[in-house]
Write a protein that binds this DNA or RNA. Structure first.
Lengths: 159, 159
DNA sequence: GTCATGTCGTTGACGTGTCAATCATGCGCC
DNA sequence: GGCGCATGATTGACACGTCAACGACATGAC
């Protein structure tokens, strides 16, 4: 497929550029929704649950301080706090007092949480492979990596 | 950048493949969040509002049936209904009875809605250009189009 | 010690998204 | 006309995300 000639810097995106943009963002959203739905059906977990459980599984003693966990998954504290409350209600994690700094708290992976993560992991990775990895050829996978790096650079540069 | 050799079909994604996946989905989410935040600050609209207003602006008589609008923006009816209630509360759209089919309803763009859309449009398109179009070179824009088409095909095929 | 200030984490309010249930109307069929 | 079913749209319940405000503790200056 070819592209329109580029316009001046002040112009609005061309129709082709807008199509690329819409395709990009809508496909990502659709993929995300599908993965979320499969994970939910197969394991009763959300992608947020999965992300948190993965980080805790890899942590020393299967526990992290709340702020460490927030950094590990790249979430805001408030978002994490809300999510942990829901996960704690379902018995996936547990909060414990932190004797070193009484402002803080440990987030501990429970046995139920560890089990849920193990059960979810294989079908989830299979879904990632089926819907993303296998949809692209090796060159395209490299292109994705380059593209996302470029987009992320621009995003970071303009923050 | 090079990629690992591909593994058998049953294997989990390789670390490189997982990195590509995470990069893809997280970059898309970050971009989406940034665009949403800019649109909100500059115009007081959400991306959902913008999508709805765009579809209505282009419609004959600046009005669409609820179901036509749902198709135009690719949303579930329920989602659209919730969103329209909030937009109606803010005076951006109005619902009218449909005399042809009393089950249905017209969704009508109000003058306030049209004005909000016009004000939002230029800064929003500028943001898309700055954060997406200009971050990529022309080849990469073509690659995005091809990539998303491949991903979407796979998504549709496995539905 | 105490006061100001910063950090850790939670909470409430609210916008957003999904799912299942519901309600009313249209429509074909007898 | 009346019955059954499909369709248009809304609703309620709940999960999720952001923002701003807050309470509790830590820390350094004095």
């Amino acid at each position: 497929m070819t592209h329109s000639t580029r316009q001046g810097r002040r112009r609005s995106p061309t129709p082709d550029e807008l199509r690329a943009w819409r395709g990009y963002i809508e496909t990502a959203r659709a993929l995300d929704a599908r993965l979320t739905s499969r994970l939910q059906k197969e394991s009763g977990l959300s992608t947020g649950d999965y992300t948190v459980l993965l980080a805790l599984s890899e942590a020393d003693g299967r526990r992290l301080r709340s702020s460490e966990l927030a950094d590990a998954v790249g979430w805001e504290r408030s978002r994490l706090s809300h999510h942990l409350r829901r996960m704690e209600d379902r018995g996936l994690v547990r909060r414990e007092e932190c004797a070193v700094d009484y402002r803080g708290a440990w987030v501990v992976l429970t046995d139920d949480g560890a089990h849920a993560f193990r059960s979810a992991s294989v079908p989830h990775l299979r879904a990632v492979r089926e819907l993303f990895v296998e949809a692209l050829d090796p060159d395209q996978l490299d292109q994705v990596a380059a593209l996302t790096a470029a987009l992320r650079d621009r995003l970071d540069a303009s923050r």
